[in-house]
């Protein structure tokens, strides 16, 4: 029963979020100095007047904004997300194609920052006050306040320009045919952007884990574990990880929004053809259909992350699990 109600509430929240995001995005586009017709066909279009009429008809371009939004929403629901003027292809195709690149990039960065951040956080807490702890803490604060594009530029100039260990950009070697590109090529090109993107999330998860672990170490049950003769290693393995891993994973899932935002910057720096650089390009070219499409898509993505965090808690935390099972 609890699950059914939870599911119902979740679907409702999801729908209201999507409506809010699309309305807000639409209003923002509307306020921007973009001619809606130009937005749909581009400035250098050679379309005939009739074709323009047809487009205006399809998207209700001559109607007031509310009607126009309704027309967009209707088409959107029917699967017609419009055409991107930047890429001269349907928005849906662009998003899916670009996301295929981004998803691996984000997954790599997300996993890397999660694992590294968690381990660093634990280590810092266990050796509280030591030199290592202070270095980790300072580094995290610096990384957290440093802008992603700046980090990206530093990494780019060090590893790609100066040391020449990695390529300067793109997702595959230039000049290679699509079917000649190997998996190794793709991974090789992904390393620097993934590193940049993971730097964005690592500070937060490290500091959070450190704080959580310190709280746990102060608790009565750790005192009792010590009284029972458990060593520091046993305490960390038996109680520390048990009590900090779940909140850390939850936080990591809840950070999908920063991941998406960071991807926009990291991908731009490395000219990585993912959804983030598509978003930047769409913004610069006043590509309204693509912007709206990505806005809705990212909302779903972030929502899915938060939902996963909540569901994980329900499944993994015995206090919630066994209370709702009754």
């Amino acid at each position: 029963m609890t699950y059914v109600r939870y599911l119902g509430r979740t679907v409702f929240r999801m729908l209201s979020l999507l409506i809010a995001v699309s309305v807000l995005s639409f209003v923002l586009m509307e306020a921007a100095p973009i001619d809606p017709m130009t937005a749909y066909i581009g400035t250098d279009s050679a379309l005939s007047e009739e074709a323009k009429e047809e487009i205006a008809e399809h998207w209700s371009l001559k109607d007031p904004p509310v009607r126009r939004f309704a027309a967009w929403a209707e088409n959107f629901l029917q699967g017609d997300w419009g055409d991107s003027i930047t890429f001269k292809r349907p928005v849906k195709t662009v998003i899916l194609e670009r996301f295929r690149y981004s998803v691996w990039l984000m997954l790599a960065a997300w996993t890397l920052s999660g694992i590294l951040g968690y381990v660093l956080g634990l280590a810092a807490a266990v050796r509280r006050g030591s030199l290592g702890d202070r270095i980790i803490k300072t580094l995290c604060l610096v990384l957290q306040s440093a802008p992603t594009f700046w980090i990206g530029l530093l990494i780019l100039s060090l590893f790609a320009v100066k040391l020449r260990w990695f390529p300067i950009g793109l997702a595959a070697p230039m000049g290679k045919l699509a079917d000649e590109i190997t998996l190794a090529d793709r991974i090789y090109h992904m390393i620097l952007p993934a590193l940049t993107l993971s730097v964005l999330g690592i500070g937060k998860i490290t500091l959070y884990t450190r704080q959580k672990m310190l709280e746990i170490m102060e608790s009565d049950f750790i005192l009792f574990a010590r009284a029972r003769g458990e060593s520091m290693a046993q305490i960390v393995l038996r109680h520390g990880i048990r009590n900090t891993l779940m909140p850390a994973i939850t936080l990591q899932f809840a950070s999908f929004s920063e991941l998406f935002g960071g991807a926009a910057l990291a991908e731009s720096v490395f000219s990585y053809p993912g959804i983030g650089s598509a978003l930047t390009a769409a913004g610069l070219n006043a590509d309204v259909p693509l912007l709206l499409g990505i806005a809705v898509f990212s909302a779903v993505f972030v929502f899915a992350g938060n939902l996963a965090a909540n569901l994980l808690y329900m499944i993994l935390d015995p206090r919630i699990r066994e209370a709702s099972a009754r």
């Binding site: 009565d220 049950f221 009792f224 574990a225 010590r226 029972r228 003769g229 009590n243």
Partner: peptide, 23 residues
């Protein structure tokens, strides 16, 4: 103390707050 605690010298705490809530 390090060698004997939990073995020959044991503590009986006040309440279940002294137990790991997730174990």
């Amino acid at each position: 103390q390090k060698r004997l605690r939990g073995k020959e010298i044991v503590l009986i705490p006040q309440s279940v707050d002294y137990l790991d809530p997730l174990m």
